[in-house]
């Protein structure tokens, strides 16, 4: 099977049952994406598929051979952090850090959804809603932080969103 991950081609032959998350971690050596619940409830495994955020634990690798997959490793490096990674560091948007790669990938996908004008459950007006803190919290509800760093996560995302505006 052929995969395109963070712009690089990979040829691997995983078992047909392999989730995209297990492909990334066990077959390609990209261990940034984390396995929390393995059932789509915690968001630690969030990656971008063709720019859209998804739970990599709840999809089969075999179904994504034609897609562009982006993981936390594709967003930045320790020496060259992406703006969202830098903002999480600046605002201390974590304690243990386990959920952080998923939080950051999810935040990137989420800001793209806001740019497209997508509303959310808390939007009064479903067309071109403003990105308030309440909106950030609602839109990030698929990412659980067991350390409860939520206020700082919202701070980091707000800063990056403001810089983009």
């Amino acid at each position: 099977m052929h995969f395109t991950i963070n712009g690089q081609s990979h040829e691997v032959e995983p078992d047909i049952r392999t989730s995209l998350l297990d492909l990334l971690r066990e077959h390609v050596g990209l261990t940034g994406s984390k396995k929390g619940c393995d059932h789509g409830q915690c968001g630690a495994c969030t990656v971008l598929i063709n720019g859209r955020r998804v739970n990599s634990c709840l999809t089969l690798a075999v179904m994504h051979q034609d897609d562009d997959i982006t993981t936390i490793e594709g967003l930045g490096t320790p020496d060259n952090l992406s703006p969202m990674q830098a903002a999480f560091v600046k605002h201390d948007g974590y304690q243990c850090g386990y959920c952080t790669p998923g939080q950051i990938c999810s935040a990137m996908g989420m800001l793209d959804e806001v740019k497209k004008g997508w509303g959310s459950h808390v939007s009064k007006d479903l067309t071109n809603p403003e990105l308030t803190d309440e909106e950030i919290s609602e839109r990030m509800s698929g990412n659980i932080c067991r350390c409860s760093a939520y206020p700082n996560i919202v701070d980091a995302i707000r800063e990056v969103a403001g810089a983009d505006a």
Binding site: G40, G43, T46, R52, R53, V54, N55, L58, T59, S106, G109, M110, E113, G119, S120, H121, S123, L126, R139, M140, S141, G142, N143
Partner: peptide
């Protein structure tokens, strides 16, 4: 739809 699931799940 927006009252259901999470952003990631709704995308899939």
């Amino acid at each position: 739809l927006l009252a259901g699931a999470s952003g990631q799940l709704r995308n899939k």
